[in-house]
Design a protein around this nucleic acid. Structure first.
Lengths: 193, 193
DNA sequence: CAAATTCAGGAACGATTGTTCCGTATTTTT
DNA sequence: AAAAATACGGAACAATCGTTCCTGAATTTG
């Protein structure tokens, strides 16, 4: 009946994530998308509807990827505390290596759009709850096994960890390239639990 | 010789801060500025040059206002630790009250522009250093007077505080309206020192 | 082969973008 | 009062915005 799609929709989405992540929603033009995704204007609009829908789809995909990755990390983990430090160290590494740092797509979108687009506001808020829950479960597990101090309530600690993660992603986006700054923050964070 | 300006330039700048803070740089149009500042297109461009220059001037003014406010708070302070908690509580209060939260103009600008506009990148970075120094001096003073535990190095603690402040501003911008979430984070933060 | 479907390319859309310019009114200084 | 300077409103600018549509080629299934 019909010709099959020549491009992979998920691959195109991954490229959309890249450019939206890098330039933001308002900073990315339709032409940017055409150029970066490598498909024609018509195919782009036929496949994804419009710019906003494409953005929403990209952000949801990013959120799912990160959530699954996080869950997997904690499932494989033999020491919860160590895993959390590795998550932070990974974020620091990313912050230092690229000349232009993308930070966190979710944080960037929250700052730029959550107040102005209810649909994106919901994605951001759902993500926050989801990630918080993942951290909370992990912390509880860590506390039961004695890997994490139980001086702090798990929920409180999870929210604290999430908050510092956001902070570090902003710092990266602000262009901080001094490893000592990040290390100082991490030292303080992990002296808490 | 010449007619005097009918509008106050600083008042106009304060209104520019408001709208840039609320909508971001790319989200604010020239028409938005004309409407909000209450002066004509011609006066606007005659006075401030162009949109980017107006933004830079607004951000610098915001930075100066906040920096001076922070310095004053610590100068007046009789207990450094209490003052820091009050700074955070104030941020939480602002986050909860408005339906549309503006977060922090500096954080918003860092996320949106620091990577793409070197001039703004410098403002953001300078601000970071300046605020960090203010916190660091305050912490040192607090440690000498025994108000703040000296288990953490002052510089490290200052960076940690700054990081959590950024995080909370992002959380606000993400639309978080649950006081318990902020309280949990604050509880964890202040159990550290 | 024929029908159906999707591709790419590009022209074209109206709307909005940031910016400039002009004419007139207003105010200040000589 | 005359001259100089600036504010003002609004028209107008070219450029870009997101989006739609048309064309012809390509490919798949019946």
């Amino acid at each position: 009946m019909a010709r099959t799609k020549e491009f992979n929709e998920d691959q195109a989405l991954d490229k959309a994530i890249e450019i939206f992540w890098h330039k933001g929603y308002n900073g990315t033009s339709a032409q940017d998308l055409v150029t970066h995704l490598g498909l024609s204007r018509s195919s782009l609009y036929d496949t994804f509807g419009d710019k906003q829908k494409l953005f929403v789809k990209s952000l949801k995909r990013y959120q799912l990827q990160n959530q699954e990755n996080l869950i997997e990390l904690f499932e494989k983990s033999e020491n919860i505390r160590t895993t959390i430090t590795e998550i932070f160290k990974q974020a620091v590494l990313e912050s230092l290596q690229d000349r232009i740092t993308k930070g966190c797509f979710m944080v960037n979108s929250a700052v730029e759009l959550a107040m102005h687009d209810p649909e994106i506001g919901k994605i951001v808020h759902d993500n926050q709850k989801a990630v918080e829950d993942i951290f909370c479960n992990a912390v509880e597990k860590g506390q039961k096994s004695g890997q994490i101090s139980d001086k702090q309530e798990a929920r409180s600690l999870a929210r604290f960890i999430f908050n510092n993660y956001s902070g570090i992603r902003v710092l990266a986006r602000a262009g901080e390239k001094d490893k000592k700054v990040y290390d100082d923050i991490l030292k303080a964070i992990f002296s808490l639990f």
